[in-house]
């Protein structure tokens, strides 16, 4: 089948971008990124610069890929990253618009590639448990109920792709930030440093991400289905820390 990809091309962060049209012959079993590969191979053979896009594992776990496809982050899949979308989800003759994530805190670097280092800085502000290598007690020393452990795992599944930010009308990073805060604050090991929420939220704001106004777009496009309830948990953590600074144990 044949589709027309209209892809955002932009030379650099300060350059003016525009859509370029690429008609391409594809097969249904092809992944979306493989369709982009086909276009790129043809461009290179013609001596033209290929479309820049990020990707790596191509199995939905590294969080590298992502683009707005027909206005939806990661395209038409349900709980999919862009690399997990297949051309059978389109039909012959479709016109497909492909754009980078749009958010002030994610400047476009080139074409579909954006700078998501702001996510790293949020984690650096407190998204960890301080434990020196070698000083850990036996793994079974602290029993953790299966329900709590499972809930922490569900929050920890975030792949840091940034679709939540791209989908949010406010470009908020609340889902991303709250997932890490929830993962760590749910576990007894993370309890002593529950004031992390203060630093992480501050960096999130300083990086220029917007506030959460409960649209829920983030969760609906999240490839890992990270739930909105974690944002509620983050807000509770924040309130608790504002009222009782550093009193994780009492919470």
């Amino acid at each position: 089948m044949k589709v027309e990809m209209r892809v955002w091309r932009q030379d650099g962060p300060d350059a003016q971008g525009k859509f370029e049209s690429y008609p391409v012959e594809v097969v249904e079993a092809m992944s979306f990124l493989e369709a982009l590969d086909v276009i790129n191979e043809q461009l290179v053979e013609q001596g033209q610069e290929p479309i820049v896009f990020e990707h790596d594992c191509r199995e939905g776990i590294c969080g590298s890929c992502g683009a707005m496809v027909n206005g939806r982050a990661h395209g038409p899949g349900d709980r999919s990253t862009l690399c997990q979308v297949h051309m059978r989800q389109f039909k012959d003759g479709d016109v497909i618009y492909v754009e980078p994530w749009r958010a002030g805190a994610f400047p476009v670097l080139k074409d579909l590639m954006v700078d998501r280092s702001s996510f790293d800085r949020i984690i650096q502000a407190g998204g960890y448990i301080s434990v020196r290598t070698g000083s850990a007690p036996d793994g079974n020393a602290i029993p953790i109920g299966k329900a709590v452990s499972d809930e922490a795992m569900s929050a920890a599944e975030c792949i840091g792709c940034g679709a939540c930010v791209a989908a949010c009308p406010n470009a908020s990073a609340s889902l991303f930030t709250s997932a890490k805060i929830s993962h760590l604050s749910l576990l007894p090991q993370g309890d002593p440093e529950r004031s992390r929420v203060l630093e992480m939220v501050k960096v999130m704001d300083d990086e220029g991400f917007g506030s959460c106004t409960n649209h829920g777009e983030c969760s609906s496009v999240c490839p890992k289905g990270i739930d909105l309830r974690y944002i509620g948990r983050m807000n509770r953590e924040l309130l608790r820390q504002l009222v009782h600074p550093s009193k994780g144990q009492l919470a």
């Binding site: 960890y128 448990i129 434990v131 290598t133 070698g134 000083s135 850990a136 007690p137 036996d138 793994g139 602290i142 029993p143 953790i144 109920g145 299966k146 452990s149 499972d150 922490a152 795992m153 920890a156 993962h183 760590l184 576990l187 090991q189 993370g190």
Partner: peptide
């Protein structure tokens, strides 16, 4: 031990 202390949510029994 190290990973559990870091908060790696390994599968657990009831």
């Amino acid at each position: 031990d190290q990973c559990v202390a870091q908060g790696v949510p390994f599968a657990r029994e009831y």
